[in-house]
Amino acid sequence: MKINNKDEYIIIVGCGRLGSHLASLLSKERKSVVVIDNNEKSFNRLSKNFSGFTIEADAIEEETLLKAKIDKADVIVTTTNDDNTNVMVAQIAKSIYKVPKVIARLFDPSRQEIYEELDIDTICPTILSAIEFKNIIIEAGGED
């Protein structure tokens, strides 16, 4: 799920804590980044060095995605706070616009298997943190 160096044009849907941080990191790596969020205030979360574009609109709408030039995107990441929106935008990107790499953030792991089936990469922060916590606890326990 690593972002290759050849993936130059990246669309991020949702400018929350995760989306804004990711956008800033990618922008620092000199990638072209477009961030979509339906609330203009969310863009305040972007770091000062962010040099990409922002679009204030609803990503479910076709016009928004076309405005973000989805047909030219190498990667699209969906990080809104609604799992179903993430999954819908991810599927539109994958099935209709054939974006090569599509990653969706899911809070609820119970739907994960369905979307892996549809060739959409999913990241579930809850599971990732649980694993990290477990590793720290078990490692710490092992040292004693």
Binding site: I60, D82, N84, V87, M88, R111, I114, E117
Partner: peptide, 13 residues
């Protein structure tokens, strides 16, 4: 709409 889509997809799969 996204909810309705997901409901139908889960029901199917």
């Amino acid at each position: 709409d996204p909810d309705n889509l997901v409901i139908c997809q889960i029901s199917d799969k």
